[in-house]
């Protein structure tokens, strides 16, 4: 597979001023400022393949945004190398900007008081698009993102979901090869979130668009990405496929049962989460007790009326990883 992004030993550190509270300390800080070194990103390496959707996640302040800024050429690294589509971002920032698109969920690139069409028109000129190419692309994006009904309404009157659809569409006006999505589903309701995810997936599959996604929403990762990179305190703490991640962290299964008689398990690795009459909810550590073992034991003692086996939610897996780091 062709690699479109290669990051090697990338690091970024900067100095930040520290000052204790109070007037006296403020004066002290004026005369003798004290600085501390902050290592925002520490020697991270990874690559992104053409046409994949990669999740780049981590808690607040983990270094995600700094990494993206270095990948798009906005920040200079302290050391390490980055190659995006054959370019060194901070040396060829302008050239690279024609090949990449970006959407920052919390920061709009639309003009608030004007209809979306004006922002599309501006972006077309900013990216120096040919008038005919622009018209064709606009027609395609309007159809695909279903923007017709609000293309002529001021952006300030759009719902958040409509605005995000416009934001993603406008970032694609110049047909970028890589799309950087920073929290694209933040603040959206479940229905709109799924619409946005479907659109991203569709773009990826039809246009072979590479997507570099950062999100706090585990649903985005689970539903869109094949691979996930977890970063914390500037360090890369996990790099695997979403399936491997689930497998590695899914040592426990949740068993929800409706039985004929009251039953209390006495097997190592099985914890009772809830018991009410013949209803029972168990957590089974599969490294100590197989599902077969516990079900056999239940059947030996009583009969099963109803049963549901569920996995640990992805959200909890991510939380475990963050806490572990």
């Amino acid at each position: 597979m062709e690699k479109v992004v290669e990051v090697s030993d990338l690091a970024k550190s900067f100095k930040t001023k520290v000052k204790k509270a109070g007037l006296k300390e403020s004066f002290k800080s004026l005369i003798h400022p004290v600085y501390k070194d902050v290592k925002a990103v520490q020697d991270i390496s990874f690559s992104v393949e053409k046409g994949e959707i990669l999740a780049f996640i981590g808690p607040n302040g983990a270094g995600k945004s700094t990494t993206i800024k270095m990948m798009t050429g906005i920040l200079y690294p302290s050391h390490g190398t980055v190659n995006v589509l054959g370019l060194i971002p901070w040396k060829s920032r302008k050239k690279l900007s024609y090949k990449i698109g970006s959407v920052f969920g919390q920061k709009s690139q639309m003009w608030f008081h004007l209809p979306p069409e004006d922002s599309f028109h501006l972006m077309a000129d900013i990216y120096e698009l040919d008038r005919i190419d622009y018209r064709n692309k606009l027609t395609e994006l309007v159809r695909r993102f279903q923007l017709e009904s609000f293309m002529h309404q001021p952006v300030r009157k759009l719902s958040l979901g409509q605005r995000i659809r416009c934001e993603i569409a406008v970032s694609l006006i110049h047909s970028p090869e890589i799309l950087f999505l920073d929290e694209p589903t933040i603040g959206l309701d479940v229905v709109v979130k799924n619409q946005i995810r479907d659109l991203i997936k569709d773009l990826n599959q039809r246009n072979q668009l590479t997507v570099f996604l950062t999100s706090h929403d585990v649903g985005d990762v689970e539903k869109l990405c094949r691979r996930v990179i977890v970063i914390d305190h500037g360090k890369l703490i996990l790099h695997s496929t979403v399936n491997e991640l689930k497998h590695a962290y899914l040592q426990t299964k949740i068993l929800s049962l409706k039985l004929e008689d009251v039953y209390t398990p006495k097997i190592q690795g099985v914890t009772i989460l809830k018991q009410k009459g013949t209803g029972l909810k168990l957590e089974v550590d599969t490294t100590q007790c197989s599902l077969q073992q516990i079900i056999d034991d239940i059947i030996k003692n009583t009969s099963i009326v109803d049963m549901m086996i569920s996995e640990t939610p992805m959200e909890e897996i991510i939380e475990t990883i963050y806490n572990g780091s």
Binding site: S65, K69, T72, G73, I74, L75, R93, K94, S97, Y98, I100, S102, F104, K107, Q109, I126, Y127, E128
Partner: peptide, 12 residues
């Protein structure tokens, strides 16, 4: 706030 970054990654 660092929002200037959103201008710097555009070709202008």
């Amino acid at each position: 706030t660092g929002d200037i970054a959103y201008h710097l990654n555009k070709p202008y």
